[in-house]
Write a protein that binds this DNA or RNA. Structure first.
Length: 279
DNA sequence: AAGGATCACAACCGCAACAAG
DNA sequence: GCTTGTTGCGGTTGTGATCCT
């Protein structure tokens, strides 16, 4: 329930539906500058006519740095299938093993691609994209394999799960989709040409496609918040702060109390970004 | 080329869990 | 212990794009 200083309930006409590039920019700029101590106040402070829930969803599923926007690879698909077989529809849990992917994305992918295949009787010839037959899955084996793979941070050059994690010393995990996210957050942050490219959206018929990470300085230039950007960058690069500390602010502090559950939660959300700054 | 069917995905909704007062 | 507010999750819906006839 949102109230003004005087205590009056704020009567806002809240927008629904697809997000415009302007709204995306406002939200991104605000969160990158201030974090979100409380989602319900974010739209107010950011000047958005949305509810906090919508802002949170938009940020998590779309604007958050580090999200992968490319196709889900065969290996990622395999992970989804594997974990789904053991976890069920726990999309958020499955998403933790697929850095850069959101629960929503995985859920959608499941419903549009995998569900039918999974429900189908396994064919002997199996999928040409997958090295493991659906009918012969061994969740335990595969799960542990992938967990080790991610946590041990190997870079994988092939899409075959069987070929992953061989003698790589990188400290960050690699997506099973062949590529790690384009940039670490701090790198993305500090790169002069690494901010959202809304110009590309102009030609996008859906206009809410993912802002391109590369190619535009407009975001930076138009934000009028350069100092805050550099401040955040500095905080990330020169301290032990993680992305969560900067962006997610109080959330992880709050969650620290719930260690068991949250070690994995926080780790997963800083999967890529923190490793280059944490020693 | 037109129009219906299907697909893909962003976003909404409702509920449960949790924290704070 | 109860109430209230916030957050996170999973199911579902709406809409634009693409395919098919």
């Amino acid at each position: 329930m949102v109230k003004t200083k005087s205590g009056e309930r704020l009567k806002q006409r809240q927008r629904k539906g697809f997000w415009s590039p302007e709204e995306d920019e406002k939200l991104s700029r605000f969160i990158l500058s201030h974090g979100h101590s409380c989602w319900t106040t974010v739209p107010i402070k950011a000047g958005l006519q949305r509810n906090g829930k919508s802002c949170r969803l938009r940020w998590i599923n779309y604007l958050r740095p580090g999200l992968k926007r490319d196709m889900i690879s065969a290996a990622e698909e395999e992970i989804i299938l594997t974990f789904h077989s053991s976890l069920g529809n726990k999309w958020s849990k499955i998403a933790k093993y697929l850095p850069g992917r959101t629960d929503n994305e995985i859920k959608n992918y499941w419903h549009s691609h995998l569900k039918k295949r999974w429900l189908k009787p396994p064919s002997i010839s199996s999928s040409s994209e997958s090295n493991v037959s659906c009918g012969e899955r061994n969740p335990q084996t595969l799960v542990s394999k992938h967990v080790i793979s991610f946590q041990g941070a190997p870079e994988k050059k092939t899409s075959s799960p069987s070929q992953e994690s061989k003698g790589n010393n990188n400290n960050y995990p690699c997506s099973s989709g062949h590529e790690i996210p384009t940039l670490f957050f701090s790198e993305w942050f500090s790169s002069s040409d690494s901010h959202f490219d809304y110009s590309s959206d102009v030609t996008d018929s859906k206009h809410n496609q993912a802002p391109s990470i590369e190619g535009s300085e407009s975001y930076h230039q138009e934000s009028g918040d350069v100092d805050q950007f550099h401040y955040n960058e500095m905080m990330i690069n020169n301290s032990n702060w993680t992305l969560d500390d900067v962006v997610f602010g109080s959330k992880c502090q709050k969650q620290e109390q719930k260690i068991d559950r949250d070690v994995s939660d926080c780790n997963s959300s800083v999967f890529f970004f923190s490793s280059s700054t944490m020693t």
